[in-house]
Each structure stands twice: as structure tokens, then as C-alpha cells.
Write a protein that binds this DNA or RNA. Structure first.
Lengths: 338, 338
DNA sequence: TTGCGTATGCAAAACGATTTTCGATAGCCC
DNA sequence: GGGCTATCGAAAATCGTTTTGCATACGCAA
């Protein structure tokens, strides 16, 4: 690889002058500038980022750690991160570290990165306290469960979103609405579940625990949705709508319903959360709460940049708003509308 | 950040000794070793990868360039890459460069990476000749269209796969089989289309061009599948099966069929390619040609490592094999089986 | 002639590590 | 005591860049 020295030699100037041209500081005559540029072109010279980073003590690179690399939800966020990063001449590396070994984090902390963006680091913080990481490197989080008031983060208000969603179903006449999803650590801290309860309470509908289906974390989403609905139906159909806490669960549920000869939405209305691509691919298309994934990524990166640049005005917490997307899977069950 | 010097000071030894401990060379007494390790722990010392990379002239980092970051097909490959990379203490960065600006590539060529893995770089090579890149950095490709005999690459034999798939449909009694997919640059070089033709020819079925639907590249996959089937049905149904060149097209097709009151597979059999997650999520589940995405990623990374380490025995081309996955969307149309 | 702004070269330090060489101590055995 | 091995420190070179200070020009105006 050509170095700055080679360029200087070819252009007949000193290395310092090449630097002056490259970094646009100091005086440099037009013809010299031209000669240097030409030499750069001729040698395909690209300044060595390693050396520059070492000297400048910043790499213009951030690490992004996601729970799962093949989860399209997080990947959309990552896409947003990449877009914004590139626009600011930043590069990013993607990790889906298995957190069993804490040592894996060393690779991230070894000077290669100016900061790290953590997506849903719930598993991770069981191994490493996030505050410890934040003490080493600028950190920016996306979290949809517990929030981290002390660390910069981006979040969505899923409690409110789920309340709106449930209330929409209620407004369509549904009274017996199933809630199904992961239980997270404690149901009482599950914002989605709380939103569901909020809606019931606000509309004077008593909470029927037999309609609540929380399954343990770390299980296959699709199977959970499928199996849970099968279980429910085995006891006789006692509901007219289902709120699933994500689209994949909803798709699994949809499959179970169809296999039991029930029609969506005619017999059962169904909603998800996330608005993955699949939500508009299934038949019927799935009503869901859209989480603006790309925007989240973009905001995360901007928050990261603000930290790196030391902007005191950088917001510690940014809320991005969700949208209730109504598609085919939801229908009124009021007789008047038939 | 703590440096090697800090560790040395705390342990009461010289920086060289710390190096000796870290890199396990030279003599070092056991108690000294212990003291040094303790100091490392205490200071949370992690050797600076920038400095090390600069000195060693290798970063143990590879760049991976994918056409689209939110395409789950490529992302599964990326997952395979990451897994293998991590297992070898390598790191990787993910790029979905917009190739309009060739300069974007400079960031990859600036010494940060020991090599680059290119996924389906068809757009890319219109801007930059791949051989030029390969001259700068070890390169490893995944390609499912034209192959690059001069560059290390991993590929699948989609011609054979599609032939098998089509022949399976033929063996089930189907004679009027639609082929639909992107046309790529030239249909005559589209391995999927060639495989389809191979199957027809081998079974003495004349090619009916009215059953071939090639749409231009760079269009929305889903819409293409949907729209194409709508067009076909507008002219009357003259087919009993559809081979789509990927799962998303197939899902779009499925939706169009259902909306026209046709049942899959009872009225029309349908197959895809890729075996994305969605293939087993839709109803009916989609028969498809499975491409071993994770394995491809793994092999790509291994091929890259072999190049970096200068293994002369490194294979220039590796074929990974596909599998025909039969699910619900395919059914015999032979009267005898009814 | 002096002084100043412009233009460039040269040299050196710094970033943090690796690697090698050269010494300086030890202790041990014969 | 000579020679060997084990153990460690000190120092230098190197990777390629940035940054700074200093020296050296030239041209032009005071």
C-alpha cells in the first residue's frame, strides 16, 4: 500500500505538504496542490485509517451490538444506523455477541470504536453492568422494556401504543380480548401488558386472567403463538380478538386459527406489534403497531455522534412514536355494522 | 484508557515484561506473571487494537458488503460470516454501500480491513471492476448469477436446483408450469431460467413463452409476484403450477391467487427459492429450494481466512448444495392420486 | 533595508503496541 | 571461577499519520 511518503516523493514535495493538501490546512500553492492530487490518484493512495485513528485517538467507527443478527426487527434498526453513520463518515461493525463470555466484549473495548450502540441489551446487562461499559465508552441504547434513565437511550412508549391498539378493538365491539406475549422478567413491568390493562380498565372491562397468555422468554416466537392459540381453542372459543405482542407471534396465532377453521378477521380479530415486512405479506394482512425501526437507528446514531462530539445539549432520552396500522386482520364485531 | 505502560507501573515491572506476559514469549517468572495479570485485571487493561494492527500490518477485521442490509437472505449469510469470524478472533464490519459513489470504497481500502467479502456484487462491479479490488485486498464473493472464475467465490448451482424443482412438479403431473422471476441482465444467463428449461426439455414439454414472466430488476419483489399473477389470471387460467425464483415473489403470487379465489395447492401448486423464514410462516407453507445461507457465510469467511493466511491450497471456488424442501404449497394434479 | 505575509521543507514528538537486541543480575553446577 | 540458564530492564526501530515549531525562501510594500 502506498503511503504518504510515496505520494510526496512522486509529487516532488515533502510529506508535510501532502498532509497540508489532504487536511486542507496551512498554505499550499495551487500548482503544488494539483501535483499532489495527481500523485494521489496515480498511486491510488488512501490515507491509512489505522494510523490516523491511533494518532487522532478516534476511529470514526462505532460498534453495534444486537441480540440477534438474523432478526429483521433489529436489522431494520441497523439499517437506520448505517445510513446515518455513513452520512457522517462513520463506519460501524455489527456484533451479535454471545454474552456468556464477557471477554468477547474486550474486542469492542480495544480502541477500535468511538462508541457502542446496544439494541435491547437485556441479556447483556445480566453479564456486564451497562454502567461499567458506559464508563469506558460512549453508549447509546434502544430499549422497549425497562428504561435506563441514567444512560442515553431511545425508546418507544409501548404501553400507550398497546393501550390505543386495545382500545381500538374495544371500540369495534370486542370485549373478550386475548393478550399473548413474552412475560419478560416481570409481567408488572411489561409495558405491553400494562397498556392492555389500561385499556380494559378505562373501558370498564374486567381483566379476565384466562385471556392472558404469557410465555417464558427465549422460546421460539412462532411456535408460542401457534401453540398458545391451540391451547386456547381446546378449551372452547371464548374470545373475539387477540393482541399479540409481536408480529411473529401473531402470524403463529393466525396459522392456528386458520387450521381450526376460524376466519380472520370474521371470527377473530388479530393484531401484532412491530410492523415487520411479513405483516403485509400474510393473508389477511396483519394490523399492527408500527415501530419506526429505521428512525430509531437513525436517532441512535445521532445520539451517539452527539456524545462523541461532546455536545452538552445532547438529549439523554429520545422517544420515537408508534403508529397503529390497520390492515385486514381486524374487523368490527358489532351487530350494527354487519 | 489504560496502556501497557500503566500496567507495567502498577505491577512494578517494565513494559517489556508486560508484553512478554501478554504474548507468551521470553522468560517470565511465575510470580511476576501473576502480578502482571492482576494489574491487567485491576486496570481493565485491553491492548489497543489500533496500535497492534498498525504495527502488525493486519487488523483481524474484514469488511462485508451486501446489496441490502434489510434483506433477510443476505443477513443469514452475514450471520454465518459473523459466527465463523468470531470463532477465529476476527471482527467484521457490515456495509451496504450505495455504489453510485466509488469513493465510498476508500473507507474499506484504508487499512482497516484484512479483506472484503462481497455478497452478490452485481451492481458493484458496474462501478468498480472486482479485479481492481482484488488487487488491493483479499476478496471473497458470493454469487448466484454469473460466476467469477478468476476470483475466490462461493456459489450454488441454481440451474440444477431449479431443474430438480421443476421436474418434481412435472413428476406430479404438472405440464403447464409458469416461470416467474427477475430477468437479470440476460435471460440466457439466468441459471434459474435455464434450469426450468432443462427440466421441460428433458421431459419433452415444449417451452410456452406465454408462461414465462421475466420482470426487470430493481423492482419490488412482492408487487412483481402479485401483479404478474394478476396479469396471468386476467387472460384465463392456463397453468397448474408456478415456479417463482424467490420466496417473496412466491408469497406475492400466493396472495394474488387467493384473492382470485384459487386455492394453493389444490388449484395451483407454487414453489419458491431461498427458504426464508417466511416460507414456513405463510399459509399454506411454501415449498422452496433451500439455499444454506449460514453455511455460505461460514464458507466465505473460511475462504477469506485461508487467503489472509496465504494458504496456497485454498480453493478458489466452493459449491454449496441446495435442498428441495417440500411443504404444503405443492400437490399432485394427477387424477390417479385424487 | 527592514518587515511581513505567503509558501514550502525539515525534523521531531506523539499515538500504543510489537519485536529484537543488549545488558545486567542472579543462581547453579562442575 | 568459568560457563550456563533463567529472569528482567532498557532502548531502539517500526507501523503511518497528525501536529507543531523552526528554518528558509520569495515577493512586495513601507
Amino acid at each position: 500500500m502506498a503511503t504518504r511518503r510515496d505520494v510526496a516523493r512522486l509529487a516532488g514535495v515533502s510529506p508535510s505538504t501532502v498532509s497540508r493538501v489532504l487536511n486542507d490546512n496551512g498554505y499550499v500553492a495551487d500548482d503544488v496542490r494539483k501535483r499532489v492530487r495527481q500523485a494521489i490518484q496515480e498511486l491510488n493512495y488512501v490515507p491509512n485509517r489505522l494510523a490516523r485513528s491511533l494518532r487522532m485517538q478516534q476511529s470514526r467507527q462505532v460498534a453495534c451490538i444486537t441480540p440477534s443478527i438474523s432478526n429483521s426487527f433489529y436489522l431494520e434498526i441497523v439499517a437506520g444506523i448505517e445510513e446515518t453513520a455513513l452520512a457522517h463518515d462513520y463506519t460501524f461493525s455489527l456484533y451479535s455477541l454471545t454474552y456468556e463470555k464477557r471477554e468477547y466484549l474486550d474486542v469492542v473495548l480495544s480502541g477500535f470504536y468511538d462508541g457502542m450502540i446496544l439494541l435491547a441489551p437485556y441479556e447483556m446487562e445480566k453479564i456486564v453492568p451497562l454502567s461499567e461499559l458506559a464508563g469506558r465508552l460512549p453508549v447509546s441504547l434502544y430499549c422497549d422494556r425497562e428504561r435506563h434513565p441514567d444512560l442515553p437511550h431511545v425508546y418507544v412508549d409501548l404501553r400507550r401504543a398497546m393501550r390505543e391498539c386495545t382500545e381500538h378493538l374495544i371500540s369495534l365491539g370486542h370485549r373478550r380480548i386475548v393478550f399473548m406475549g413474552y412475560q419478560f422478567s416481570r409481567p408488572a413491568q411489561n409495558p405491553r401488558y400494562l397498556g392492555y390493562q389500561d385499556a380494559l380498565e378505562a373501558n370498564g372491562i374486567p381483566l379476565d386472567e384466562s385471556l392472558t397468555r404469557l410465555f417464558p422468554d427465549h422460546q421460539d416466537t412462532l411456535t408460542c403463538g401457534y401453540q398458545t392459540v391451540c391451547d386456547l381453542l381446546d378449551r372452547g372459543r371464548s374470545f373475539t380478538a387477540i393482541c399479540a405482542t409481536n408480529d411473529l407471534i401473531a402470524v403463529g396465532a393466525m396459522r392456528a386459527l386458520v387450521e381450526h377453521g376460524l376466519r380472520v378477521p370474521d371470527d377473530v380479530s388479530l393484531t401484532g406489534v412491530d410492523d415487520l415486512e411479513i405483516a403485509s405479506l400474510v393473508t389477511p394482512t396483519l394490523s399492527t403497531i408500527r415501530i419506526p425501526k429505521r428512525q430509531i437507528g437513525s436517532v441512535l446514531m445521532e445520539q451517539m455522534l452527539a456524545q462523541i462530539h461532546g455536545d452538552a445539549a445532547a438529549p439523554r432520552a429520545v422517544e420515537v412514536s408508534t403508529t397503529l396500522v390497520l390492515r385486514e386482520s381486524v374487523k368490527s364485531c358489532l351487530p350494527s355494522e354487519l
